[in-house]
């Protein structure tokens, strides 16, 4: 994609905002607003984006924003969309934007309730794999073996990352997809598709965090690409909870996970046995995903 082909006019994000350099989440929202047009209403919960969107003079979003408490994004979005409908404003696209904590942990109950009711909005989780806004504490989205401030060396994060996509698919929602900033066309296409579908839609975006992951701000795109190429974060979509389809093909022979881990300070002290465990976990999840994809053909 060439830069002059970008639909800059519809971007609902100002430059000079408050996000850290190289923030995957800031870039993701930029693509998101580009794909979804300007008739947006955004629900935010406690996360980095509540700071990015909310602190003048660095306020980043040009659309109306409802900033709600941490556990309630899914429910506030439900009420907001129904309220707009009641006012005859059906055309407004409602986006609920939450981090991994507001999705995987404290937000899971309201997310699940909204998904089960098939509420008509798009829930976007930008996943930087820990509580970065409060200073890098583990979440249930933190990968096994990562260092965080509540899993300090020599402890490492225990337990595997929660498989949020399978949880959402199990709700039988019309559309769920993964996306990364390394594949903006793929992300935009998914968001545009999501916009055309009614009912509950869920987009899971891997969002590299340079200060939290211990990476260079210039590595965000490269890391996102490696996450896909290693199978750590495959790009796919799920329709109605049963129809699984890869959208960016990953080679049958994925590159070793170490290539993805080695550039990040949070994995620096991870020993070889732990790396093997994580690699096996990724292999197993990959095979399970391939089965679902093949069964959907």
């Amino acid at each position: 994609m060439k830069i002059d082909e970008l639909n800059r006019e519809s971007e609902m994000i100002y430059s000079g905002h408050n996000a850290c350099p190289g923030c995957g989440a800031a870039l993701a929202v930029r693509y998101l607003t580009r794909a979804l047009g300007t008739n947006l209403a955004v629900v935010l919960t406690a996360s980095c984006w509540s700071i990015i969107a909310g602190m003048p003079p660095f306020t980043a979003l040009k659309c109306p924003v409802l900033h709600c408490p941490f556990p309630s994004a899914g429910s506030v979005g439900s009420g907001l969309k129904r309220g707009l409908n009641a006012k005859g404003l059906q055309d407004t696209t409602v986006i609920v934007l939450a981090g991994d904590g507001g999705t995987f942990d404290i937000g899971l109950q309201s997310l699940s309730g909204a998904a089960q009711r098939n509420e008509d909005y798009i829930f976007v989780c930008y996943d930087n794999e820990a509580y970065m806004n409060t200073g890098m504490q583990s979440s249930s989205a933190t990968p096994y073996g990562a260092l965080t401030n509540t899993a300090p060396y020599p402890l490492f994060k225990e337990g595997q990352k929660k498989d949020i996509m399978q949880i959402m698919a199990a709700h039988g929602i019309p559309y769920a997809a993964t996306a990364t900033v390394a594949f903006p066309e793929d992300m935009e296409e998914k968001l545009k598709k999501a916009k055309e579908i009614s009912g509950f839609r869920f987009i899971h975006i891997l969002s590299p965090c340079p200060p939290g992951w211990g990476t260079e701000s210039s590595d965000t795109i490269h890391l996102s690409r490696l996450a896909v190429a290693t199978g750590f974060f495959p790009l796919y979509e799920v329709r109605n909870g049963v129809n699984w389809k890869m959208t960016v093909p990953t080679d049958e022979k994925r590159i070793p996970l170490n290539d993805y881990l080695s550039g990040q300070r949070r994995f620096k002290k991870m020993d070889e046995p732990r790396r093997q465990i994580l690699q096996k976990e990724i292999d197993r999840d990959w095979e399970s995903l391939m089965k679902r994809v093949n069964n959907s053909k």
Binding site: G101, D105, I106, Y131, T134, G135, Q137, N149, T150, P152
Partner: peptide, 12 residues
């Protein structure tokens, strides 16, 4: 516990 500023240091 669960992270929240300004108490997170205690958890850490």
């Amino acid at each position: 516990g669960y992270p929240i500023t300004p108490s997170s240091e205690i958890a850490q």
